[in-house]
């Protein structure tokens, strides 16, 4: 077995989609952001929103795997008490989407052209004014990059993108199921021992 000491080797994809399910409490986003700053992990995008369970938020991050071993990113996230679950969706068959609003310069001569481009990208026109219009587009980053590029010759007045959200295809989910409070209490009353036979995300393998 070979070792690489003090340096990390990443053979996986460069950008990882990491989903953290976190307690919806003040300061959680700061803890996550501060962790990334302190450990020198780079984030390309970060999106926060509610989940299907009350009291939990979902943070979707696009992490640059070259700035840090992705395993360290996941483990360090897990160390935050408010982080309940971490999943690296890049290892899964995943669906990733982003939403963008693009305000493009338009006049009576070229409006039609822009609308045609929008149609190709299946973008919606959500606002029209005499000298501009707003396109709303959803899709993966490549698609949005493509539309932005096509709009550039007309002049982009304003661009707003949400960052990536993602989900695993099929029945598998990254949801946190409410654990049995009694069982948890038992764990903690015995100094944090975990329940026999129940696998936790980082039980050595």
């Amino acid at each position: 077995m070979s070792r690489e000491n003090g340096v990390h080797v990443n053979n996986g994809p460069r950008h990882h989609t990491v989903v953290a399910i976190v307690e919806d409490r003040p300061g959680v986003l700061m803890r996550v952001a501060s962790l990334f700053r302190r450990r020198g992990f780079n984030i390309d995008s970060l999106t926060v929103g509610p989940t299907e369970s009350e009291g939990l938020s979902r943070i979707t991050m696009l992490v640059d795997g070259e700035s840090a071993p992705i395993e360290q990113v996941e483990k360090q996230l897990y160390k935050l008490i408010d982080v309940v679950k971490v999943s690296n969706l890049s290892q899964e068959d995943m669906l990733a989407r982003e939403l963008a609003l693009i305000k493009v310069r338009a006049n009576n001569l070229n409006r039609h052209e822009i609308l045609e481009i929008a149609q190709v990208f299946r973008a919606d026109v959500v606002d029209v004014a005499t000298n501009s219009l707003i396109l709303q587009v959803t899709g993966d980053e490549d698609k949005i990059d493509g539309l932005v590029k096509m709009c550039e010759p007309y002049g982009i007045r304003e661009l707003s993108r949400t960052g990536r959200i993602a989900m695993v295809r099929g029945a598998k989910s990254t949801t946190v199921h409410e654990a049995e409070p009694a069982a948890i209490a038992r764990i903690h009353s015995t100094q944090g021992r975990r329940i026999e036979g129940r696998e936790l995300p980082f039980s050595s393998d």
């Binding site: 976190v22 307690e23 935050l80 008490i81 408010d82 982080v83 309940v84 946190v176 654990a179 409070p181 009694a182 948890i184 209490a185 764990i187 903690h188 009353s189 100094q191 944090g192 021992r193 975990r194 026999e196 936790l200 980082f202 039980s203 050595s204 393998d205």
Partner: peptide, 19 residues
């Protein structure tokens, strides 16, 4: 409080038998 419910904090203490 008779019990604590910290769903984000469950230290692994047993050690994996296979390992």
């Amino acid at each position: 409080p008779s019990e604590i419910n910290l769903r984000g904090y469950k230290p692994t203490v047993e050690g994996h038998a296979g390992m």
